[in-house]
Amino acid sequence: MKRKISGALFVSIVAGSTIALSPYPASAQIGGIVHDPRNYAQNILTAARTLEQINNQIRMLQNQTVSLLNEAKNLAALPTSTLAELESQVDRTRGLLGEAERIAFDVKDIEAAFEGRYKSSALAAPNAALVAKAEARWMDSVAAFEDAMKVQAAIVGNLGGTRASISALVTASQSASGALQAAQAGNQLLALQSQQLGDLAAALAAQGRAQALEAARSAAIEAEARERFRRFRGKN
């Protein structure tokens, strides 16, 4: 009898120890509801993993949004454009060069004018014709200097528009929100620089034309003086 009691007590102690050492307590029924701690813990773990996945997706969407915004800024066009003003300034300068009086910037016109008024072949004309040609050469020089001054005046007039364009483009470049806007501002500044170089070339061309015609007139005067002297000696 004592052995049976001792065996039952041992079984009870082992069973109790097993329950105490188990990681999850056994299911319990409370108020008619069965509570399984192992299932509850698994559900909590699953919910935590799901929440982490959702947070990862939210962060990924945020990164994609930032990337799209950056791309939109880089692709945004520059709202400032000085192209129309630059083209207008270039057209004004070209128009003045095209209005050159007497001897224009044309190879055929230059050849015809020099053949008739500046070269030695023109010295064979009668005295009255020599006087007319000398007057024509003087008018060529005066017109050339007048044209040069007109071009220079137009270039000086362009400086106001150039200053305004530079100010607008520098401001736009400093406030550019993306790569495209910065590049477009830089391109317009380069176009403005090209326009200024074009004005400088036009001024040099007009001034060079005037100086060349004056030098040609001086040479023609010298040649004509020799011809007149030769004719004078021939009569005496």
Rank of each mutant, 00 (worst) to 15 (best):
112 A>P: 03
25 P>D: 01
45 L>Q: 14
131 V>I: 02
60 M>P: 10
11 V>Y: 06
207 Q>W: 11
230 R>N: 14
34 V>C: 11
66 V>T: 07
84 A>D: 15
80 T>V: 15
61 L>G: 06
202 A>K: 00
101 E>R: 07
199 D>A: 14
75 L>E: 04
159 L>D: 12
80 T>R: 00
225 A>Q: 05
72 A>C: 02
21 L>C: 13
98 G>M: 01
133 K>M: 12
172 A>M: 10
176 A>L: 05
78 L>M: 03
56 N>W: 05
110 I>V: 06
98 G>H: 00
153 A>Q: 07
150 K>L: 12
73 K>G: 15
112 A>Q: 01
110 I>L: 13
35 H>I: 14
170 V>I: 03
233 R>Q: 15
205 A>D: 08
218 S>R: 11
6 S>F: 09
172 A>C: 13
177 S>W: 00
3 R>Y: 09
62 Q>T: 07
188 Q>D: 12
11 V>D: 15
206 A>Y: 06
32 G>H: 02
137 R>D: 11
161 G>H: 03
94 R>S: 10
62 Q>P: 08
67 S>H: 03
30 I>H: 12
150 K>G: 14
82 T>D: 11
154 A>M: 03
4 K>Q: 11
206 A>P: 04
81 S>A: 12
85 E>Y: 08
78 L>S: 10
155 I>F: 12
187 N>E: 11
169 L>M: 04
13 I>D: 10
208 G>R: 00
175 S>I: 00
173 S>L: 03
148 A>Q: 02
43 N>G: 15
81 S>M: 04
84 A>Y: 03
190 L>I: 03
63 N>G: 11
147 D>R: 00
102 R>Y: 08
48 A>L: 09
186 G>L: 06
60 M>N: 14
181 Q>H: 05
114 F>C: 08
159 L>Q: 14
165 S>K: 00
20 A>L: 13
137 R>H: 07
202 A>F: 06
65 T>Y: 10
176 A>Q: 02
192 L>V: 03
67 S>L: 05
198 G>N: 08
200 L>Y: 09
72 A>F: 01
175 S>Y: 07
116 G>W: 05
25 P>W: 01
58 I>Q: 05
221 I>D: 15
173 S>G: 05
173 S>A: 05
166 I>E: 11
189 L>H: 02
140 D>E: 06
108 K>I: 13
101 E>Q: 12
229 F>C: 09
213 L>Q: 12
168 A>L: 13
2 K>L: 13
222 E>M: 07
36 D>F: 01
167 S>G: 11
206 A>V: 01
143 A>T: 02
98 G>F: 04
229 F>N: 10
195 Q>M: 09
56 N>L: 09
37 P>D: 12
212 A>H: 09
94 R>E: 12
175 S>K: 02
37 P>L: 11
26 A>T: 01
189 L>V: 01
145 F>L: 07
226 R>I: 06
186 G>T: 02
47 A>F: 10
113 A>L: 03
155 I>K: 02
52 E>I: 02
85 E>V: 09
94 R>D: 11
58 I>F: 04
220 A>P: 10
162 T>W: 15
133 K>T: 06
5 I>R: 05
180 L>N: 03
199 D>G: 14
211 Q>Y: 10
142 V>L: 08
135 E>I: 00
45 L>G: 14
52 E>R: 00
